[in-house]
Amino acid sequence: MSDSTDERTPTPYVESPIIMATVRIITPFVFTFGLFVMFHGADSSGGGFQGGVIVGTIVLMLGMAFGIETTRNWVGPKLPVGLVGSGVLAFILIGTGPVLLGGSFLEYHAYEIHHASKYGIELVELAIGLIVSGIVTGLFFVIASGMEDNGGETA
């Protein structure tokens, strides 16, 4: 799981059992909290942006605990970009749906379902959350990459 630093120049990654155990325990709670903030944005402070950042932090924590390279290989290069793209696409689809149904852009009431506005806003928040968490994850991996190339000179 954490053999990313074997036979390699020193990196900022320390293979600490304390950090690993802590991250393993708190990750589900942080994820739940992120989703809570995302969905609860309609009724109290919070929303897609804040929740998305919190969900994105999970990958940062995993990277800190288990090695960034390992986490990157586990997540894969396509997931962050896919998250961002599908978030924007979902937002645009939710927004233009009412136009097709004869309303104006983002006019949730055009969807003929109960509490259309409420659910529409929740979905938009979720889409924003996808975008933000994807960007946070992608930035983290891209900025952290290249570390092993330069590690020897810095340490």
């Binding site: 944005g41 309609a42 009724d43 109290s44 402070s45 919070g46 929303g47 978030g87 924007v88 937002f91 645009i92 927004g95 852009f105 983002l106 949730y108 509490h115 506005s117 409420k118 529409g120 806003i121 938009v124 928040e125 889409a127 924003i128 975008i131």
Partner: peptide, 22 residues
């Protein structure tokens, strides 16, 4: 139908702005 006015402005009244930001 949302209690948080900030969210209402963000995702409904000014939804087009938010799409632009996204």
């Amino acid at each position: 139908e949302v209690n948080n006015v900030v969210t209402a402005v963000l995702a409904a009244y000014r939804g087009f702005d938010t799409l632009g930001e996204a």
